[in-house]
Amino acid sequence: MSEELKNNDNLEVEQHEENTNDEVYEKGFLGKAALFFLELIKIAVLAGITIFVIRYFLFKPFYVKGQSMEPNFYESDYLIIDEITYRFRIPERGEVIVLKSPVSTDYYLKRIIAIPGERIKIENGKVIIYNDTNPKGLILDESYLNGMDTSGSLSLTLGDDQYFVLGDNRGASFDSRRFGAISREDIVGKVWLRGWPLDRISSFDVPQYSI
């Protein structure tokens, strides 16, 4: 009888030890799971902050609406706009930019044609630039227009912080010929990449002008 009790006592001790091990294992597992989910939350928060900074301070996506930049940009093209470059240098002639409309709440996609301090003249379908290098004027060679003329007639001298912008589709663009020169503050950023459609993904170089 006493031997049976002794055996039972041993059994109870062994069972207690097994239960203790189970509790330790369970607590260890829950602790690791909690740390794992905590790390996931940290990663998600950091990713969200990174996306926010990139989206609102470095690069911004835009969809093209309208035909004013054809044949180089088409309706529904998905563009990534570089908002940081112009914080370190001034915009250059030939760069395609997104700007805040000076006459509405819209955003426009246009090309910089004349830069601060220059005089621009449009006549006989041509754009003529006057500056220190070309005081007598030089017709701007715009090969990206595929032979298209620039309609209108004007002569305008730009101030120290002014830019003259035009759409590539000169016959269907609302641009500086209508609303005048824009200021540096109106410029959101320059077009860096076309991300859609897939068969037209490309980055953009500045045209080389002989001016």
Rank of each mutant, 00 (worst) to 15 (best):
E92M: 11
Y86S: 03
E75F: 07
I120R: 03
Y108F: 14
I51L: 08
I81T: 04
S101L: 08
L79E: 02
I122M: 07
T20S: 14
G94Y: 09
V64Y: 02
E70L: 05
D82T: 01
P102K: 00
D82Y: 03
I90Q: 15
Y74F: 14
I97P: 01
I49P: 03
T133E: 15
G66I: 01
Y74V: 06
I120S: 05
L140F: 00
K136H: 10
D77W: 01
G125E: 05
Y86G: 02
E23R: 13
P135S: 04
A33T: 09
E92P: 07
K32A: 11
E95V: 01
G117I: 06
V98L: 00
Y86R: 03
A47H: 02
I80K: 01
S68P: 06
G66T: 07
S104M: 07
P102S: 06
G94L: 06
R119K: 15
L46P: 06
V45M: 09
I112F: 00
V24A: 12
Y74C: 07
I139S: 13
N124A: 13
G66D: 00
E23L: 12
Y130H: 05
S101W: 03
V127M: 06
K32N: 14
E123Y: 04
I90H: 12
R89L: 06
G66V: 02
D132Y: 03
K136M: 11
A114D: 07
R111H: 07
V53I: 15
S101R: 04
V45P: 03
E70S: 09
F57L: 14
L30N: 14
A34L: 13
L109F: 08
I139K: 10
S76A: 12
G117V: 02
Y74E: 08
N19H: 15
G48Y: 00
I112G: 00
E26I: 15
D106A: 11
A33G: 06
R87E: 10
I49Q: 03
Y78I: 05
F57R: 00
V64E: 02
N72H: 11
Y86C: 04
D82G: 00
F73N: 05
L30F: 15
A34T: 11
P61Y: 02
Y56H: 12
Y107G: 00
S101E: 04
E123A: 10
K27T: 12
D22S: 11
V64C: 06
R93Q: 12
D82H: 04
D132I: 09
V45S: 05
N21M: 14
I49V: 13
I43L: 10
F29S: 14
S104E: 07
K65Q: 15
M69E: 04
P135I: 07
D106L: 09
